[in-house]
Design a protein around this nucleic acid. Structure first.
Length: 410
RNA sequence: GCGAGUGUAGCCAAGUGGUUAAGGCCCCGGUUUGUGGUUCCGGUAUUCGUGGGUUCGAUUCCCAUCAUUCGCCCCA
């Protein structure tokens, strides 16, 4: 019986690993260039971290976590990385580092969901977190960084939506207002919304159920939603963010109903969606989470960040050019070939040769099929006279030169 | 967790209740005892996701299971 990879997991094979490397290299270059440092946290954490960090009322924590008990300790495969990064921030005393702290990460995440296009049980995210700045300039930097990254990947058809969901204080008022407005018709809402009513009524605004949408389409609710219910500080923060986005020339739409599914968000939330991804159209989601560090036992620290789903990016990203080899050594003298191959490699020229030592014609054929730039031919004649023949496989031009001059011809 | 579709080689696939399961790509070998990406010839599935059932006989019909795709939900 053949053992197969578990449901919702994929092998990244040699055929497409270069696409991942492309995305990862772009991320590394761009983020490091903006003075973000990479952080790598464990793939499993204490279950409690996510219960407290991501939130007990979220679907992620309630039904999507891979949790296991090891020696009476409950551990969970990370379903997202913000909680882990914040845990590491606190545990390593990173608040003592010169602030603000700018971090980026990439890696696999795990959620027990029904797999679908653009949604795997093991999937990969790349993300950034900026800790220590409470002003909207931080939100703007982080959003700009997301836009730049998507731009680097040449991803078309994206749109940015932003909202401000307020701080815990003003959000409580807002929640109560929504509850009051919705309460008379509560029976008619879907089962999920009835639960949301208790736990987090803001998320009712986000319900995709048609009946719920219609129920929410009242003048009273519109007024509440569109009113600047948020407090002065939050409102100023939002204005400030919009101003920075204008300065940066970033287009956005304000979506008053945008509510993210993780409990830790405060003030700014945003989402970047693609118009050609089907139902799983969000490629980037993030926002401010000023309360999280404290919730997890650290000193009160403002923070903002986002995450992107790499599989989704890949689905809409124009394919990059595959890596290819520069030189292919063609020879039936395996000893001499071996020496030459490593000589070229040691000078940074990507080189391969025919380990099977097949016929000359086959080797040349191989060079061409590998899409190498040059075939470096090392035959009896060349060896006898200390020469090599360098053949340009695109133009078919070739010339025989002494072996020590080879680097000038590749 | 709910609803619908799919499952034949590494990839794309045709096919039928009955002897040896088309074809294409890729790969390997020959054509070509030192010049490729063209042509031509040949080779690669004890078996049709897996297990069970119906039948004289199943890849084909039925059931289960696994995987996958799409929608819902949720999220990146």
């Amino acid at each position: 019986m053949i053992i197969k990879a578990p449901k919702g997991t994929d092998d990244i094979t040699a055929q497409d690993s270069y696409i991942w490397q492309f995305m990862e290299n772009k991320a590394q270059n761009l983020f490091e260039n903006s003075n973000y440092k990479e952080i790598r946290t464990p793939i499993f954490e204490s279950t409690e971290l996510f219960q407290r960090g991501v939130g007990d009322s979220t679907d992620i924590v309630n039904k999507e976590m891979y949790t296991f008990i090891q020696k009476e300790r409950s551990l969970t495969l990370r379903p997202e990385n913000t909680a882990g990064v914040v845990r590491a921030y606190i545990e390593n005393g990173m608040h003592r580092l010169p602030g603000p702290l700018k971090l980026w990460y990439k890696g696999p995440m795990f959620r027990y969901e029904r797999p679908q296009g653009g949604r795997k049980r093991q999937f990969h995210q790349v993300g950034v977190e900026l800790l220590g700045i409470q002003e909207a300039i931080a939100d703007a930097e982080v959003i700009k960084l997301a836009m730049e990254y998507l731009d680097e990947l040449n991803i078309p058809g994206l749109s940015l939506e932003i909202n401000n969901i307020g701080c815990p204080e003003c959000r409580n008022d807002f929640r109560d207002k929504i509850r009051n407005a919705v309460q008379p018709g509560l029976n008619m809402f879907c089962a999920d919304c009835k639960v949301r009513y208790d736990k987090n009524p803001l998320r009712m605004l986000d319900c995709k159920n048609q009946t719920c949408k219609e129920l929410l389409d009242t003048e009273e609710l519109k007024e509440i939603i569109n009113s600047d219910y948020i407090c002065q500080e939050c409102s100023d923060h939002f204005d400030s963010l919009k101003n920075y986005l204008d300065i940066l020339n970033i287009e956005y739409t304000i979506n008053k109903k945008l509510v993210r599914g993780l409990d830790y968000y405060t003030k700014t939330v945003f989402e970047i969606t693609s118009n050609n991804l089907g139902a799983q159209n969000a490629v980037c989601g993030g926002g401010r989470y000023d309360g999280l560090v404290k919730i997890l036992g650290g000193k009160d620290t403002p923070a903002v960040g986002w995450a992107m789903g790499m599989e989704r990016l890949m689905a809409i990203m124009p394919a990059p050019k595959p890596n290819k080899i520069k030189a292919f050594v063609v020879s039936n003298n395996i000893d001499k070939a071996l020496e030459l191959v490593f000589k070229l490699r040691s000078r940074g020229i990507s080189t391969d040769f025919d380990l099977a030592n097949r016929k000359f014609v086959k080797q040349l054929d191989k060079a061409s099929k590998l899409n190498a730039d040059y075939a470096v031919i090392l035959g009896e004649d060349e060896i006898n006279f200390g020469k090599v023949t360098v053949k340009n496989l695109k133009t078919s031009e070739q010339q025989t030169i002494s072996e020590d001059k080879i680097f000038g011809h590749l």
